[in-house]
């Protein structure tokens, strides 16, 4: 493949900010020693062995589980939203997309923080719940709150790619299916949904990856009670200073993400757009 001259700055960018850090993380993952002193490094898979313990595997399992559930919820909620928006006239459509995106103009941390006041014991939601008879429900500092935070923050990442595929879809195909006698459900499941798969795949990837690696949402809304793999990695880098173990966990997480991406792209048999080129 020949690169355009314009391509070189991107290549340098890629090298400095993606390739080298990735190599460094891999290097740290397979060594032990004082994180500050390269001369003390020695090759070892000790940190991988350390990770294979019920505690850390449990954390990984919980992270993957929560990320999976939140991705599923995003899909179930997001697909109808995308479908509804795509059916509207362009003018209304643009307004609706804008409404979806506007909350993202606010800082991510701030938006998550706002949930603290909503979910707290004296928060509005809890008050409403106790008003309708559901008293003593604890909404904050548990896995449900973390899930809520994930769905709330990542939902637009599911809606937008699906929406973008749906609007580009050739409406003649839908009409042809209707002409040939398909009912509405058949049109959806046999024509619209299969054609929108590339968008769905992108949406799943774009929700699953940030969800499985988040540490802010689980820290804030989970009250640091249920640690996720992201928190564990943060802890190694920020408080414990064991960059080696932190890197090991990052690599393991990356392998998981790659595997899940490979798995989802398998469903995308047509390789239409290959999950990319949607924006």
């Amino acid at each position: 493949m020949k690169l355009n001259r314009i391509g070189y700055p991107y290549l340098i960018w890629l090298g400095i900010f993606i390739l080298i850090p990735l190599l460094l993380v891999t290097y740290f993952a397979f060594t032990t020693g004082d994180s500050q002193n390269f001369s003390t490094f020695s090759f070892s898979i000790e940190n991988f062995e350390k990770f294979i313990s019920p505690i850390y595997l449990g954390v990984l399992y919980r992270s993957v589980k929560l990320a999976f559930i939140s991705t599923l919820i995003c899909l179930v909620l997001g697909y109808p939203i995308a479908l509804i928006i795509s059916k509207e006239k362009p003018k209304i459509r643009n307004i609706m997309v804008l409404m979806l995106v506007i909350p993202m103009w606010m800082n991510f941390l701030l938006r998550t923080y706002a949930w603290l006041t909503l979910l707290g014991k004296n928060g509005i939601l809890t008050k409403v719940l106790s008003f309708i008879g559901l008293e003593g429900v604890s909404l904050l500092y548990n896995d449900t709150a973390v899930l809520l935070g994930m769905v709330y923050n990542f939902l637009p990442f599911m809606v937008l790619p699906i929406f973008s595929v749906l609007t580009k879809m050739d409406n003649n195909l839908v009409e042809a299916a209707e002409d040939l006698g398909a009912n509405r459900a058949e049109v959806f499941w046999k024509v619209i949904f299969p054609l929108s798969l590339p968008g769905v795949i992108t949406g799943i990837t774009m929700v699953f990856i940030p969800a499985v690696s988040t540490f802010v949402i689980s820290g804030l809304l989970g009250g640091n009670k249920s640690t996720l793999i992201g928190n564990l990695i943060e802890q190694q880098f920020r408080y414990t200073g064991d960059w080696h173990f932190g890197s090991t966990m990052s690599i393991i997480l990356m392998v998981f993400i790659l595997a899940s991406m490979a798995l989802t792209s398998k469903f995308d048999k047509e390789k239409e757009g290959g999950g990319g080129g949607l924006w």
């Binding site: 603290l116 707290g120 014991k121 004296n122 904050l140 500092y141 009250g223 640091n224 009670k225």
Partner: peptide
């Protein structure tokens, strides 16, 4: 003790306790 703990917090604890949330 973990099951009965509401949360593990830093400076945020002040707002939570003052507000009677815990």
């Amino acid at each position: 003790q973990k099951p009965i703990v509401y949360a593990y917090l830093g400076d945020e604890v002040k707002d939570v306790i003052v507000g009677g949330e815990a």
